[in-house]
Every structure is written in C-alpha cells, then in structure tokens.
Design a binder for these strands. Structure first.
Length: 489
RNA sequence: GGUCUCUUGGCCGAGCGGCUAGGCACCGGUCUGCAAAACCGUCCACUCCGGUUCGAAUCCGGAAGAGACCUCCA
C-alpha cells in the first residue's frame, strides 16, 4: 500500500506521487505572531510534523517551508482596516518588531517542547515584500487586478472567466455576491468578494513599505503565494494549514498564483480540523483558547492539573487530523495515562530477557506492515497507536514471563518501536522537572527516615542510609535541627 | 440566508457492507504480607425513521441535534 492522502480540492484520498521523485516540497501556513501560541496552533504544527517525519521515513527528501506572518492580516478588509500587529503594538506601546520577536520566540519554544521539528525554511512576510510586489505586478500585467487610490485589488469576476474561483472551498461566485451584502467599507472594490493585494497605509499606520502604487503593505494572502513559489517552485506538492484557512485564504492563494503564472501551483491541499472546547472551536476571537504554556503549568482555570508537552502531543495524535477533537480534562488525563503505559513499555524493551526461542503470539512482520498501512491511509495515527499497544501487551507478557522472545525478534520489535514511536510519532521519553521533583522528595523521605532512626538511637540504620546515599552521589550535611543535602557533581 | 461537515459504549476516539479497533474509567479474577503495576476475563455502542441488501455503524432518502466556513483566527 502506498501513501494515500486526502486532497481537499478533490475531496477524496489520492495516492501521493511527488512531482519530482524522491523530493517533496511542502508549504504550511504558520502563525501570525501577535499572541501566545495556544492549543489550536499545536494541531497543524503536529499534524504536518507527522507528515514531514513520515515522508522522511519513506525516504523522501523533504523541503518543508512554514512561514511566520509578521505583517499584513488586516483587521478587516475595509479602509479602516489596520495591521493586526501594528494594533497590538500601539496597545502595548512597543515596536511592532518587538512584538514579532517576542511571540516568534514564544512559538518556537512551545514547538520545541512539543518536539515539533523545525521546518527547512521559515520565511517571514516582512522579509519578502519585494517578492510580493513583483507578484502583484505580474497579476496586474495579466489583467487580473486593478488599482484604486493606491490600493490594488484582485478582480475575482474577471479571474473567474478564465479560471475556476471557488474550486477549493466549493463556493460559487453568484452565491458570494448574494451573501456579502452587509459588509461595509467596500466602496473601492468593484465587487465585495474582491480582495486586497496591496493596501495603501493610512498616515498613522506604522508598518509600511514603498511601492509604485503607494506607501503601504501587502494584502493578507500574498505572502504565502510569493514565498511558496520562491522556495518550492512554481509547482509544488503539498500545501497545508487549518481548515479555517480554506476560505478565503487558500482560495485566494490559488487565484493569485494562477493569475500570476497561468496555472495552479499546488498538487495536494491538506487541512487539519479544529480543536473544540465544549463543542465549540477554540479560537482567539472566541476568547476560549488555552495557551500551551498554561497547559504545561496547569495555570488555566479550565485545567485541573498541568499536562506535559508529550501528553498534549499524544492527545492530538490519538485523534485523526481531519476530525474535530474535543478538549476535556478527562480526555487529557486518559491520554496521559495511555502515554505513560506506552512509554514505560518502550523503556523496558532494552531490558527484556532474551530467550533461545520466541513464543510471542504477535507476528512482528505483520505488525510492522500494519503500522505502515495505518500511516499510509491518510496518516491514521490513532490506528497506528492502537497497533503499538499490541506491542505493549507483548512486552508486558515477556516481562511477566508469560511469553519469551529471541534475539532476532527482539531486534525487530525494537526497530519497529524506534521507528514509529520516536521517528514517526515524535514521542520522546520525558525526563523533566517532574522527575527532579520526585527525586528530591525521595531523598527527603530517606533522610527523614534516617532522622527517625537517629531519634531511636538506631545508628546502624541511620549510618547505612547515609553511607548508601553517599555512594549513590548524595552528599549529606547534618544540621542542628535537621539536614541539608546536595548532589555531588 | 448560502456552502459544507459531523452525531459511535461512563469518557476520548477508530471504523468506508460481513471479522474483538485502541486508550482511559468501572467490575471480577490471577499474582502480591498489603497496595500498585502487569496479566486474564466481564460489562457498556453505533441520534431517530424509512429504504437498498442474504447481511448496514458503514450505502441511499428523510427527520432531529451539533459544528465549521461565508469577517481576523490553526
């Protein structure tokens, strides 16, 4: 079975065949860096991290481009629209680039905690203004854009005479016309569904660049078109992002690229579904999002406890990327326990007793194949995980002497788990602050027992505790009213 | 209003016409000085109403409920 992925544009699973054998180009819409990364950001990051890892596992050389949006993204499409980042800057009286720097770092930190691999290239919109302007010029030359008062708009009606506008999202132009009546501030545009390619900046607008039309900034969809083409070529394999970007963002990207190049750039469109909270989308605008940092520390009021980054990752991977996933403490706790069982078993593989013969009831070649089949079926990570739990069962049976395994099977087993748990799912054994806290508690417990022994004048026991701890590497300092300790370095 | 999607057991979540998904929780058992872990086993499903079929959670039609997009959002 070959890799099949669900292509949003055809609305069905298709066999994945890269344009250039062995090489894959993949572009994913990254964050707009004007706020702390939340659980919603983790979903596409982990979904496409999974795809990135799996493509590499299959032997492809992948160039993965994920942008940082640090300009554009108007508050609305009207003249009063202002740059989202500029707005936040004014509120906090910071330079826009200060905001960008801060939240980019915050995003990177969260991603690295989640063990999301860095993309091959992480271009910024602000660093590609020239490319965007050039592309707008091309679109104008081809007659699919018009200028009004220093702003440039995409002419959707004209475009739709030569191309199919709405093919990705299933939207029909006439319907759009009928349903965008109540938006105001559309006076510059020929049609309400036209969208900005270049926007003239108002005098107070901080982020602005020169162009032949005006001092202004690029429209919100331009960056992805310009940067994907720059780094992946005019035709590339995969474009991903959240489902909420399907319209208008991705639809407009298709139109821009086709208007500039004469053909479409993207072969496979992939979209991850949303995370819901009490059945509703978790989103910035709804104010019901939980920051990743809040998950790690448990500081949000909806959280009954902290959840580690790996728990979050596992939680997301236990659901298929195209399904909505509902957040709840119960579900997170279940994920935490399940992950612990998986990783405990994985950690004990290297300590398994090797026997002459294998009596294991599981067929390892079959298991390996099933794991690949699961991933090949549109990245079905929940199924993959269910197969890995079959391996967990086998490991535990060997530990409890109910089954035996020989050297070659053990190697096979280990290799399967390394491949799928570490490389593909990207789960890493956690040895974090929790462990340190436990260690500290354990040592204090030992020393308190020693205090009790001393009080009972059981010096034999108290000395034994001290000497043994010493041997392990714990230095003990007795004090008048208790004790102190440190780890020998 | 338009376009689209979803509705599975106590909870999460697979499933794409016939075969135990899986995880978590619960209950019973084995093991254990006790407990935990582990293992074995039990229980609990497919929103409703029609239809197609030898056979439907799975296909078709209808109803109800929920959600997404149509405006910045992953």
């Amino acid at each position: 079975m070959k890799l099949n992925i669900y292509n949003t544009i055809s609305r069905k699973k298709e066999i994945f065949e890269p344009i250039n054998p062995k090489h894959v180009g993949m572009y994913v819409c990254g964050p707009t860096v004007y706020g702390n990364p939340h659980l919603g950001h983790a979903r596409p990051a982990i979904t496409f991290d999974l795809l990135f890892r799996y493509l590499q596992q299959l032997g492809y050389k992948v160039r993965y481009v994920r942008n940082i949006t640090d300009v554009g993204h108007l508050e609305n499409d009207a003249d009063s629209g202002e740059d989202k980042i500029a707005k936040k800057a004014r509120l906090e009286e910071l330079e826009p680039m200060e905001i960008v720097q801060y939240y980019t770092e915050s995003y990177h930190n969260a991603m690295s905690a989640l063990n999301v691999k860095s993309p091959s290239i992480e271009p910024r919109a602000s660093g590609h203004i020239i490319e965007q302007i050039e592309m707008i010029e091309k679109i104008m030359e081809n007659g699919f854009a018009y200028e009004v008062n220093g702003s440039v708009y995409f002419d959707v009606e004209k475009y739709s005479k030569s191309f199919h506008y709405g093919k990705l999202s299933g939207r029909i132009i006439d319907d759009l016309l009928a349903n965008t009546l109540d938006l105001d501030g559309q006076d510059e545009k020929k049609n309400s569904f036209d969208f900005a390619l270049w926007k003239k900046a108002s005098p107070e607008h901080i982020m602005r660049w020169h162009s032949k039309w005006s001092d202004g900034f690029p429209g919100w969809h331009m960056e992805c078109s310009a940067m994907s083409i720059k780094y992946l070529g005019e035709k590339f394999d995969i474009h991903g992002g959240g489902m909420d970007l399907l319209f208008p963002h991705h639809e407009c990207e298709i139109a821009q690229s086709a208007a500039a190049l004469g053909f479409e750039s993207v072969k496979y469109w992939l979209h991850n579904n949303m995370i819901t909270i009490n059945g509703q989308k978790m989103g910035k605008s709804l104010g019901n999002f939980i920051n990743l940092e809040e998950f790690f520390t448990g500081s949000h009021k909806l959280l009954t406890q902290p959840y580690s980054a790996m728990t979050i990752r596992f939680f997301l991977l236990q659901a298929h990327y195209r399904s909505t996933l509902d957040f709840s403490n119960e579900a997170l706790q279940a994920a935490e326990k399940g992950l612990a069982r998986l990783m405990t078993a994985y950690g004990s593989v290297s300590k398994l007793k090797v026997s002459e013969t294998s009596t294991i009831s599981i067929n390892l070649d079959e298991l390996n194949q099933k794991c690949f089949d699961a991933m090949n079926d549109d990245l079905n990570s929940p199924i993959l995980i269910s197969h890995l739990f079959d391996a967990v069962k086998t490991i535990n049976l060997i530990i409890s002497d109910n089954e035996q395994i020989n050297k070659s099977d053990l190697d096979k087993l280990k290799s399967i788990l390394d491949t799928f748990i570490l490389d593909v799912l990207g789960l890493v054994p956690e040895n974090n602050s929790t462990n340190e806290a436990v260690l500290s508690d354990v040592i204090n417990l030992m020393l308190n027992l020693r205090m009790e022994a001393k009080a009972k004048k059981d010096f034999e026991l108290s000395d034994k505790i001290r000497n043994e701890l010493n041997k392990i590497g714990v230095e003990i300092k007795d004090k008048k009213d208790g004790f102190d300790w440190s780890l020998k370095s």
